[in-house]
Design a protein around this nucleic acid. Structure first.
Length: 479
RNA sequence: GGCGGCGUAGCCAAGUGGACUAAGGCGACGGAUUGCAAAUCCGUUAUUCGUGGGUUCAAAUCCCACCGCCGCCUCCA
């Protein structure tokens, strides 16, 4: 099956074919581990997870690398300001290694809760300093860099294609620049590939400078991705993804470095996930990790539990469902009402899945028409809203329940909503006790003592038991 | 100020020239069912796609203008 994907570089949806089938090499920009990921960050990782699953659906084998940034990411603009990791460590009174580890663990926990497939390879910026220095040296040898007081800079005027990803040329960028370029930079768009340690201040992380320059320093933020991606995935990369905000600076600079060092085109495809934004009356705009004001998955889950969602798993996957309801290239506004609607939909889905599973023997095959419709949507630039529509259609299809269930399991390989793992919640009450109460209630109803009958019903409801009066017989289930 | 995007039912959201007499979900309403509910099932819920023009045999889909919203241009997913 062929898959069509949007390519930021060409600004069009085209058929995607890897360079070396059946393997697709994929690099996904990962977190800077100085704080928790927020639900906006997580939207991008959910998009990438869908991409991986869609590529597998198309028959490919995905070799995905994701980096963990634990050095060099500065808090301020124009290659100045503190290192985010050093600032984070100071804020918490811990070592950099401690906060890196704990926020990485938190990130992996979030990934697991959202059913995100792990990358084939994680790589940490501080483990790959030599790789990055080698790229700096390769750039220096080819004349792409110059040295000023605070570091080694990439001269963007030496790279004719600079800005091709965002469709801007150097002149536009100069004209639109609102901030003063750092002192000594030749062009506003030039960026540090290596920063020298400040003279009057002891850095927590520093390494001997490359290019035979005396003293110590640390890698520029952009260099890690281009250096590590090449090390782990080779000189030509099939797909590189990240958040939409990375188009203009981070990925643009990565291209300049990588192609400058390699001397040939690097990534065959670029994909970017749009932002999750907050409504105006709720702070407004996109969420900002650096401002410290943001919503984490843990807080979102806690909120959903208070709103009656029955478990952490259901809450997390309700968020996944919420994201799947919108296309990845479309901005999505986060609202609690919207999330609650998704949680309701997820609950209804779970009910249907559990009911259908009861008829499933394991031998049924998926319903081809429905499966095709679903696949078509997924392979058309990851149109998950349409894919979800196909999912609901099969749930209501006039077909044997076991076959519907088999179809859902197949769809869930892409959806990742954990259908096979869906389980009833644990009971807060002994089933024998429930039966006893139901008998009492049935007797009360026969005597037309409805007050007592309703009392029992309310009592059970409080313990998460819902009772259903069907013809002649009353059954129960978990709410 | 420059660049980009969006505006589809109460809400979220697909569709981007003819199969649209516009998916799907949430919500709401009506019916069946019930002692009453819940759950379930059936049905209803945009003659219309921000507004006004235009192009076309044909437009939610293309063009122009206007109104409104959002993002980027600063670290950022």
């Amino acid at each position: 099956m062929t898959i069509k994907l949007y390519n930021t570089m060409t600004r069009s949806v085209d058929e995607f074919h890897p360079l070396h089938p059946p393997v697709v090499s994929l690099y996904t920009c990962g977190p800077t581990v100085y704080n928790y990921a927020h639900i906006g960050n997580l939207r991008t990782y959910v998009f990438e997870d869908i991409l991986v699953r869609a590529l597998k659906l198309a028959g490919y084998q995905v070799n995905r690398v994701m980096n963990v940034t634990d050095v060099g990411h500065l808090v301020s603009d124009a290659d100045s300001g503190e290192d985010k990791m050093e600032k984070g460590a100071r804020r918490e009174g811990k070592t950099i290694q401690e906060i890196a580890r704990s926020y990485y663990d938190a990130f992996v926990a979030d990934m697991n809760r959202l059913n995100l497939l792990p990358p084939e390879q994680w790589c940490w910026a501080t483990d790959e300093i030599d790789t990055q220095k080698a790229q700096v040296e390769a750039l220096a040898e080819k004349g792409f860099t110059y040295v000023i007081e605070d570091g080694i800079y990439f001269d963007t005027s030496k790279f004719p294609d600079y800005g091709k990803l965002s469709g801007q040329n150097l002149e536009d960028l100069k004209a639109g620049a609102r901030i003063e370029p750092a002192a000594g930079k030749k062009n506003p768009t030039d960026f540090a590939v290596w920063k020298f340690s400040p003279k009057n201040e002891q850095r927590l992380m520093e390494w001997p400078n490359p290019c035979g320059i005396e003293g110590k320093g640390f890698p520029g933020w952009h260099i890690e991705c281009s250096a590590m991606a090449i090390k782990y995935l080779g000189e030509t990369l099939d797909i590189h993804c990240g958040g939409i905000d990375h188009v203009k600076v981070h990925h643009t600079n990565e291209i300049a470095q990588a192609e400058g060092a390699l001397g040939h085109p690097w990534c065959r495809w670029w994909m970017h996930g749009e932002f999750l934004t907050m409504p105006k009356d709720d702070g407004g705009g996109k969420m900002s990790k650096s401002s410290g004001e943001f919503l984490t998955l843990a807080v979102l889950i806690r909120n959903l539990l208070q709103r009656g969602v029955s478990s952490e798993t259901d809450a997390a996957l309700s968020y996944r469902y919420f994201l799947l309801n919108a296309h990845y290239r479309q901005q999505l506004t986060f609202t609690w009402d919207g999330l609650e609607a998704a949680a309701n939909a997820y609950k209804n889905l779970k009910r249907a899945v559990l009911e259908l599973r009861a008829s499933y023997t394991g031998g049924e095959t998926p319903l081809a028409d429905h499966e095709n419709k679903f696949n078509e949507a997924v392979l058309d630039d990851l149109n998950m809203p349409r894919a979800l529509a196909a999912m609901w259609t099969v749930i209501k299809a006039d077909a044997p329940a076991g076959e519907i269930y088999a179809t859902l399991l197949k769809m869930d390989e892409v959806l990742g909503l954990g259908m096979a793992e869906m389980e009833e919640e644990a009971l807060a009450i002994d089933p024998a006790e429930i039966e006893k109460l139901l008998e009492e209630r049935t007797a009360a109803r026969q005597e037309k003592n409805f007050a007592r009958a309703d009392e029992i019903r309310d009592q059970l409801a409080e313990q998460g038991i819902e009772i259903m009066d069907a013809a002649g017989k009353t059954t129960w289930r978990r709410l």
